[in-house]
């Protein structure tokens, strides 16, 4: 029993070290090909359109729902206990510091991260990545770097839009549910507002924008074993990305808010 537990811990540790090493090497390779000018601008634009523009409707919808739910919950709890304009502060802080970046990250994981792993996984098992190598094209420059650069640029922009949309939806919901006027809501929102909060939110966006493509690319490149392997790897990648986003989210406050 003890031996089996030790084996499991050792295997998990070895697997974690293997993935950490792979992620580091991939990140270094992406930096190398980017700095050496091997990445084509049109590939980056295409990926920015795919990751950024095409994710926008779903990100906006998620932000609307996050703003509405936060506003409704806060209104329910504050009515009769604290001044209602405090709701503006709660909604603003929740959206900008937490829900905007994290909900956007979840949308990007589902829409983009899973797709990247499945796409690269399929390319791996159908020898398209070998073909790129044989044709003198570096798969890191051709496939990985454009996706990572696009993620790094697109996700903070999506976070900024999600923040705006979420706040506006919260304001409308507060007026509709507890009759809190727009001015009172904005007064509350400004009351505990720090300029740093927006930057904090965007830095989270950049971190997620790097983390999600990097993990999905890494998992895609490791795919083996045909269609079943692609499915298995994609599921595993989504799990890793969710855990990674929540872990990074958890270490942000002690790093940046104290």
């Amino acid at each position: 029993m003890l031996r089996r537990s030790i084996d499991t811990v050792a295997r998990t540790g070895a697997s974690a070290a293997h993935h950490a090493g792979g992620l580091f090497l991939l990140a270094v390779a992406i930096v190398r090909v980017t700095l050496s000018g091997q990445v084509r601008a049109r590939h980056v634009f295409a990926q920015t359109y795919e990751i950024g523009v095409r994710s926008l409707p779903l990100v906006a919808l998620t932000a609307v729902l996050s703003g509405v739910v936060t506003s409704q919950q806060g209104g329910y709890q504050f009515t009769g206990s604290v001044p209602l304009y405090i709701l503006g502060s709660v909604v603003a802080s929740s959206i900008v510091l937490e829900l905007g970046p994290v909900m956007t990250a979840f949308v990007v994981i589902g829409r983009v991260g899973a797709r990247i792993t499945a796409e690269l996984g399929t390319m791996k098992v159908s020898e398209q990545i070998d073909a790129l190598d044989s044709l003198g094209r570096d798969p890191v420059a051709f496939l990985a770097a454009p996706r990572l650069i696009a993620g790094m640029v697109s996700v903070p922009a999506l976070v900024a839009i999600a923040n705006l949309v979420g706040l506006f939806a919260g304001l409308v919901a507060a007026r509709a549910t507890i009759g809190l006027g727009g001015e009172a809501f904005l007064y509350g929102a400004r009351l505990f507002w720090h300029r740093w909060d927006l930057l904090y939110s965007l830095i989270k966006g950049v971190a997620f924008g790097v983390l999600i493509p990097l993990l999905s690319l890494h998992m895609g490149f490791l795919t083996q074993g045909g269609a079943e392997g692609v499915g298995r790897q994609t599921t595993q990648a989504v799990v890793f990305m969710i855990i990674a986003v929540l872990s990074v989210d958890a270490i942000f406050p002690p790093l940046f808010l104290n």
């Binding site: 159908s126 020898e127 398209q128 073909a131 190598d133 044989s134 044709l135």
Partner: peptide, 12 residues
């Protein structure tokens, strides 16, 4: 690689 052409099993 620049002097070699490779034909893959399923064309790739």
């Amino acid at each position: 690689r620049s002097r070699v052409g490779y034909v893959f099993q399923y064309a790739a």
